[in-house]
Write a protein that binds this DNA or RNA. Structure first.
Lengths: 113, 113
DNA sequence: TTTATATTTCTACTATCATCGAAATAGTTA
DNA sequence: TAACTATTTCGATGATAGTAGAAATATAAA
C-alpha cells in the first residue's frame, strides 16, 4: 500500500474520532439538518439537552478537527457543519482500496475510485 | 429533525469511534487495500508494527462494531473489511441533511439524497 | 503425543476523555 | 458606565481506552 502521509492518517483519525461519540455525532447531524445556515449554541444545547460547558467543549473539539465552523452575529455564535471536510473522508478511507492484490476485476462493491 | 433511533446513533458513533484512532484507521485502510481477500493477523502486525496483543485488541474492537469480519484458514485468521457497514455511514450522517429550514433550493454541496 | 506456530486472553498501568458547576469573558443594550 | 445575556474557560472527578508482557488457547505438523 502506498504510504499515506503520517499527518494525514492522524488528521483523519482525529476527525473520525471527533464524530465517534454519541453527543458529537448528534451535534453533527443536527448541524447538517440545519445546513447551511447552522445553529446558535443555545439552540443546539436545548435541542440536545447538553449543558453549556459540556456543549462548548464538544463544539471546540469539532472545530479543532475542522468539522464545524463558527461565525458571530451579535451576541450569538452560529455553528455550521463543514461540508468540504466531510466530503474528504470516504475518499481517504478508500484511497488505496483493492490495490494490494492486483485484482484483474476491480471490486465494485467497495472501490469507487 | 426526525429523531433517529437512539440505538442507531450510538451504533454509528461507535463505528466512527472505532476508526477514530491512528492504528485502527491504518488497519482499516490496509484491509481495504487488500480487499476482498483480506489479510492474516501476523501480516497486518508486521506491516504496521503493532504488537500481537495490541493488534488483537484493536481487531476485536473493529469486529465488535461490525467493521471487519474474520475467517479461519488452518492456523491463520483472515480479517477482511466489511464493505456493507462502511457504506452505511455517509447515508446515516446525511440522512436529515438540510431538512430543517425547508430550503426551497436544495443545497447541493452536501445533500445528496 | 509432542512440538511448533498463530492468535487471543489476562492483567496492570498510564493517559486521555466526557461531564459539569462555577467563574470569567465578550458583546449588546439601556 | 452598568446591567444583561450568550458562550467559553477553569478546575476537578470518574470513567474509559490504548499499550504491551506473560500466560493461555487453538490448530497443524511431526
Amino acid at each position: 500500500m502506498a504510504k499515506p502521509k503520517q499527518e494525514d492518517v492522524v488528521r483523519f483519525a482525529d476527525m473520525l474520532g471527533a464524530m465517534g461519540t454519541e453527543p458529537r455525532l448528534r451535534i453533527m447531524r443536527l448541524l447538517l439538518s440545519a445546513h447551511p445556515e447552522g445553529m446558535v449554541v443555545g439552540e443546539i444545547g436545548s435541542e440536545l439537552a447538553i449543558s453549556p460547558s459540556t456543549l462548548s467543549h464538544h463544539l471546540e473539539k469539532l472545530k479543532g478537527e475542522g468539522l464545524v465552523r463558527v461565525r458571530r452575529e451579535k451576541t450569538f455564535l452560529w455553528y455550521t457543519a463543514n461540508a468540504d471536510a466531510l466530503q474528504e473522508l470516504p475518499g481517504f478511507l478508500y484511497a488505496e482500496c483493492c490495490t494490494r492484490n492486483k485484482a484483474i476485476e476491480p471490486q465494485r462493491i467497495v472501490c469507487r475510485q
